[in-house]
């Protein structure tokens, strides 16, 4: 395990040997397509009437021939772009060439894959629909979002287990810090289906969440409001090591909110996070799998939007998983 650069402000060694300050990355938009919810503050307990309904919310021309994961992702992406001020009457208003798409999903196409094997067994391959071809590759959703909005930057799909959502946010910051993109749309999506329910023993989220990330300088240049700052990240052997890597040496005191899995009570060897209120999004939403980390970041945006105190620590993964990821988010000013 190793801590990544200095709470997200890692210096970058340039070819000329000069160390230039790397770009600080901020969140400028968040959007949800989560059953029963409308806005990110509802992740932290705000209550509104209505909310997204996958039974009625996944229709329309642009949804035709799309897999369920892509439909959910498209439904979350548009409000996130709108929230960031990057979506108007003519659609996406940013620079497509410099906008990346990152998607986290652990089970996004599992139901398609299992359904196709059933069809082959019953009818041979001639029973398959040719339109299903994109759905045999997990990156179908990232491709759908890129095509819908003309996003031609790096296009990256993570299927990385319980930490996958936080990992996607980390890599989104990475492609911006490396200058491969100016803006990144980060999506966490887990569509429900029979195979996923059978595998997990419970229905998965059946929803999506999207964030817009960009460099602070880029956001300032276009007059967009930063909502949260993406800080230190680590993927480590256990929770204590991951948390220590992103919080040690911080002068600002303990985080104000700890978004975690389970009740947050320290398991042996996992270590507590003193002073932080623990909150598990999955207590209400059920298993979020690859969407969890991205949902946690959307909740962090709501935390800062409400003017609440303290940084937000997000952790995903636990004992029994291959690793635990931790990500620290600080307020709009960093």
């Amino acid at each position: 395990m190793r801590r990544d650069g200095h709470d997200g402000t890692a210096g970058t060694e340039r070819a000329d040997g000069r160390r230039a300050a790397a770009r600080e990355v901020v969140v400028t938009g968040a959007g949800l397509a989560v059953p029963g919810l409308t806005l990110p503050d509802e992740l932290l307990g705000a209550v509104r009437e209505g909310g997204f309904d996958p039974h009625t919310g996944l229709t329309g021309r642009e949804m035709r021939h799309k897999d369920r994961g892509s439909r959910l992702a498209l439904r979350a992406t548009e409000p996130a772009l709108r929230d960031a001020g990057l979506y108007g009457e003519d659609g996406f208003g940013g620079d497509g060439d410099t906008t990346a798409v990152l998607v986290s999903s652990n089970f996004g196409i599992l139901d398609s894959v299992c359904a196709f094997t059933d069809i082959i067994a019953r009818d041979t391959v001639t029973g398959l629909s040719p339109l299903g071809l994109p759905q045999t590759s997990s990156n179908v959703t990232a491709g759908s979002v890129a095509m819908r909005h003309g996003l031609r930057g790096p296009n990256i799909t993570l299927c990385n287990g319980p930490t996958s959502g936080l990992d996607a946010v980390y890599w989104a910051r990475g492609v911006i810090a490396a200058g491969r993109a100016e803006t990144a749309v980060v999506i966490g999506v887990e569509p429900a289906g029979d195979a996923v329910t059978k595998l997990l023993g419970a229905p998965v989220l059946d929803g999506a969440v999207a964030l817009v990330l960009e460099s602070r300088t880029g956001a300032e240049a276009r007059g967009a409001r930063a909502r949260a700052t993406v800080g230190g990240y680590a993927r480590a052997a256990d929770r204590a090591a991951a948390v220590a890597a992103v919080t040690s040496g911080r002068a600002a005191g303990p985080p104000g909110l700890w978004l975690t899995e389970g009740d947050g009570s320290p398991a042996p060897g996992q270590g507590p996070v003193p002073g932080a209120a623990a909150f598990d999004l999955q207590a209400r939403l059920g298993p979020c799998a690859g969407a969890l980390g991205v949902l946690q970041c959307a909740a962090a945006v709501a935390h800062f939007d409400a003017g609440r105190d303290g940084a937000v620590l997000a952790t995903a993964g636990g004992a029994g998983d291959d690793a635990v990821a931790a990500l620290l988010l600080t307020g709009p000013r960093g």
């Binding site: 395990m1 590759s137 990156n139 990256i156 993570l158 299927c159 993927r235 291959d322 690793a323």
Partner: peptide, 10 residues
């Protein structure tokens, strides 16, 4: 290894 990433990038 713990800093591991599975990229499903076709």
């Amino acid at each position: 290894a713990t800093r591991t990433y599975t990229f499903a990038n076709a």
